[in-house]
Design a binder for these strands. Structure first.
Lengths: 120, 120
DNA sequence: TACAATACTATCCATTTTGTAACTACTATT
DNA sequence: AATAGTAGTTACAAAATGGATAGTATTGTA
């Protein structure tokens, strides 16, 4: 009886935590952008080109990530103004998540390819 | 020059892998459902109630997850037919991902609460 | 003055996702 | 026959997301 309560409570907490994470980095682009920025700081157009994402969406995603403290935005006074986006220290706490997802996606793809090569 | 190519290639791979993962367990419900099923097998209505998800969506999500080999569906011959959904061995490969997301969501929530308690 | 580069923003529309409500199918019980 | 429980499905509506195109603002160059 005690274990049922315990499981139910911890399970609810786990669900809530996962929802929280999805609220911050869910969606089609945020994790991809974080991955690109792990390479180093990038300018707006660089991000746009590398991720193949339209400026409208990119702008929105970056704003949200900035609000959540995951990226920093720096305006440089260059000939035409350029803006640099970079990861913040806080975004490093997501490394584990990103790496786990990267590893899984890679092994999953390998599994699919094997299945195609030699149908079970 | 070599390192640039290398980074660019590995970065593209990482992005692809993350996209692959999102294709399989992205969206509002799949990770939540997986978390609930980590508690043990559940019937359709149990899942619907616990996740607070409408039957239409639940049905669709479960079908997709079954297709991807993440959950099993077992029809039991009981008085009114019941159907049990359970995690498959393959879904266990996602444990790392789910746990990482759970941990991050929890620490993020704590951070937010602290921020509210004592605004920086 | 005209044009180009950078970083956006605005407008509009298409697609995808999610939700609501009602309904089907099967069986068992009253 | 009427009702209820389980597991869905269907039809429709609302909302979120994504994308294409063009335009703004600033500065520099030809």
């Amino acid at each position: 009886m005690d274990s049922i309560v315990h499981n139910s409570v911890t399970c609810k907490k786990a669900r809530l935590a996962i929802r929280d994470t999805l609220d911050v980095i869910g969606g089609k682009w945020k994790m991809v952008l974080l991955t690109i920025l792990m390479d180093g700081k990038k300018r707006f157009l660089e991000l746009s080109r590398e991720a193949e994402i339209s400026p409208r969406i990119l702008s929105k995603e970056l704003q949200e990530m900035e609000l959540n403290g995951l990226v920093s935005r720096t305006v440089c006074n260059t000939k035409p103004v350029t803006v640099e986006y970079a990861l913040t220290p806080y975004s490093e706490t997501l490394k584990e998540v990103l790496e786990a997802m990267g590893r899984w996606g890679q092994q999953h793809r390998e599994r699919i390819i094997e299945e195609i090569a030699q149908p079970q």
